[in-house]
Design a protein around this nucleic acid. Sequence first.
RNA 1: GGGAGUUUAGCUCAGCUGGUUCAGAGCACUUGCCUUACAAGCAAGGGGUCAUUGGUUCGAAUCCAAUAACUCCCACCA
Length: 890
Amino acid sequence: MEIASKYDPRSVEERWYNFWLEKRLFHSEPDRRKAYTVVIPPPNVTGVLHMGHMLNNTIQDVLVRRARMLGKNACWVPGTDHASISTEAKVVKMLAERGINKRDLSREEYLKYAWEWKEKYGGIILKQLRKLGASCDWDRTAFTMDDIRYESVIKVFVDLYNKGLIYRGVRMVNWDPQALTAVSDEEVIYKESHGKLFYLRYYVEGEEKYIVVATTRPETIMGDTAVCVHPEDERYQWLKGKRVIVPGVGRIVPIIMDEYVDREFGTGALKITPAHDINDYNLGMKYGLESIDIFNDNGTLNANGGKYANMDRFACRKAIMKDLEEAGLVEKIEDYTNKVGHSERTDAVIEPKLSAQWFMKMESLAKKALEVVEDDTIQFHPAKFKNTYRHWLENIKDWCISRQLWWGHRIPAYYFERVTESGDRRTEVVVAVNEDEARKIAAEKYGYNGDLRQDEDVLDTWFSSWLWPISLFDGIRNPDNEEIKYYYPTDDLITAPDIIFFWVARMIMAGEEYRGEVPFRHVYFTGIVRDKLGRKMSKSLGNSPDPIELIEKYGADGVRMGMLLTAPAGNDLPFDESICEQGRNFANKIWNALRLVKGWETDGEVRQSDENALAVEWMEQRMACVLESIEKDFDQYRLSEALMSTYKLVWDDFCSWYLEMVKPAYGKPIDRETYDSTIRIFERLMCMLHPFMPFITEEIWHILQTCEENETLAQLGAESSIMMQHMPCSVFYDQRMLDDCNVAREMIAGVRNMRNSRGLSPKEELNLIVVAGSDKPLNRRFDGIVRKLANVGEITYSEAKPEGALGFMVGTMECFVPMKENIDVESELKKLEEELRYSEGFLMSVMKKLDNEKFVKGAPEKVVALERQKKADAEKKIEALKERIGELRG
RNA sequence: GGGAGUUUAGCUCAGCUGGUUCAGAGCACUUGCCUUACAAGCAAGGGGUCAUUGGUUCGAAUCCAAUAACUCCCACCA
């Protein structure tokens, strides 16, 4: 068979991905096998693939492919998230570019545009994932707003409302004046910002005296309804019971006294604006203060702003300060740094705002969700995130779930007006899965048969994603269906730590509430992908490479491997393109090994040599050994370690050692037995590597096979669990043999080193004389291999030391290479003396331990025995070295 | 302000319950090689007071305390 001299990932990757798709290898249906389930963290429909997705999905794919090969029924469900607030922002922008104002559209018209947008852009990211090799069950692709998911969300809302866990109330919420919606506490990002602290004079009513109040937000004085000082503050006792005039506004407000005030801050006097600050709101409630709302929803001042009405809040700040300064009401202005809340999605400065919203009670849900993580029913990797998780759940507040948007799940609450028995007009609300149901309830409960008005708001995006592991299998609408019973709970969740509260915690709550069972067993937290300078990758910085370009340049296998090697769980990944090079180089290396092996001529007449039989045996032992360590790595989710071991197994053990051991001399054929074994070993290596590098392994596996057209490496597990056959997990391996081989490898390296340092050609054959130093019986099985790889003619075992030879030591064994030419005595002496010095120092440290009575008494026998052995070996070595030095000086 | 974490080779990180896996790996680096699979390579090398200072111990990268630097999370100080 003709094999291309260069590996071309592009054509190979596309070919195999299509093949897998055609065969529907990634599709899963419940059967008798054990299920292995992963649900994708649904990317936003607004998104395009970035490096974070690449890392996250590569990890998922490795786990899924491995499970599939181990004979499990692997199901990786893909999908996208409607991302209400960011999508709405994009759609509004797109409309604006077309000259359309959202406000001129009806809800239905607007949603038509939004769906169009979703259809056009929403699938991009999933298509991109195919290039990465993601083995998702595409037939199951879901969307958080498709019919099943939509109905599930509505059903849950109604259910939680009926259970009393969802309520509507007027609260101080975080208002995003740009998106014109409330957002949850988690969606507010506090950022350090350099601002000013303004000291304003509040004159006492009817007096010339004034009190100075410090504020960062002078524009809110229009809403001031009190000034507060600490009740024990000496400086302000005279103000007790008095009233002051709000500067520039003229409103007369009371002085109140409350321990909330920090006497150290500013002047120790605080202005109270109940409508626009959560703390002021609380104080306002406590003292029965009036609450004056001065802002419109978009952050401009309303009619209560008087002459500043319609001005933006930040422009107003400037204008007001100018006016106050002119009026002599400003004491001073200081620079001040504080944290200001910004909207996660729009980055607008959040405005605390009193409004009617829907909330969810979290306390009871949180309790259960905490338990299952505390008792390790769900394990976090790395475990340190348990702390973060615990802290949040122990301090949880109710969740504001309504959003003043159109794109999303519309809240199934229906309002109507009625007159009560006592004659009051009241607005009633009924919550039901649809309007017909709502009518029934309204009729039954209130005898009302008129029109209903549905709540205009939609639900927080996360109110649909928290159901994801359940709703994907339709386990909300049909809790007893076969699929949910088979696939749930899922096995692993792979996600970034920044959504631990938004998503992970809430999914656990939903799992407990709706399945009485955790949604997954393990959560693997990936790190954040950063650039070389340690900055987060972001669009605005332009420091994020295009993943698709990377794949084209290095191959998907190369990119996957590069990322995995440098990203242990929970560690940030400092991304540099060069890490992909390592992956690409590795692919190239494997390809060349293939070219070598496939280039060999076999000859059935040639008998397998002892050396080749030994090489095969050794390689198999090595594989079993590495396999065992990989098992452990996967158990602990140490993917980068598992990959590194496999990498070294292939590159070092297989390519550098094994293939060199069995490689026939130029032009000579190889024996059939060794050839077949080599192919088998190669195949197994491809199996081990397949989860990490699915494309090249599949390609090579096919070339190696005498090839059944229809078989594929990716599906093997499905029928026969060939990975189990090929990767026997409980194989015993002979550590002694591996040790013996290591001695041989050291001898080979010693001879090569000798050539290197003396400038001898590798082609010149040398002889080797071994003087066994220790009483350990020498294993000479590897002699033939040493001779071949070190180009040694003869190995002689002797008691006597040869003359005119250069030496090196392997353990306590002395090796000599006789030289034809004169040896450089001086440099040889220098080397020996250095080695002697080191050995003597080593002996001293060992002696120190052994001379210490406490050590000999206190340490375990085994440790003491080892020290004694060290001592004996060192003494022997020193003796040998001294002898050699004596001879050379001779 | 509270909490958590990190600090080991130039870089990214392993190092489990203290002792032959104790100072490791990969990359980078140095030297020599276009050796008929591979220069995206081969062979051989160099490189670390395990952040600092104390303590516990026969023995500390490993356990304890303090210090320093960095990172992250949480929090209503105007």
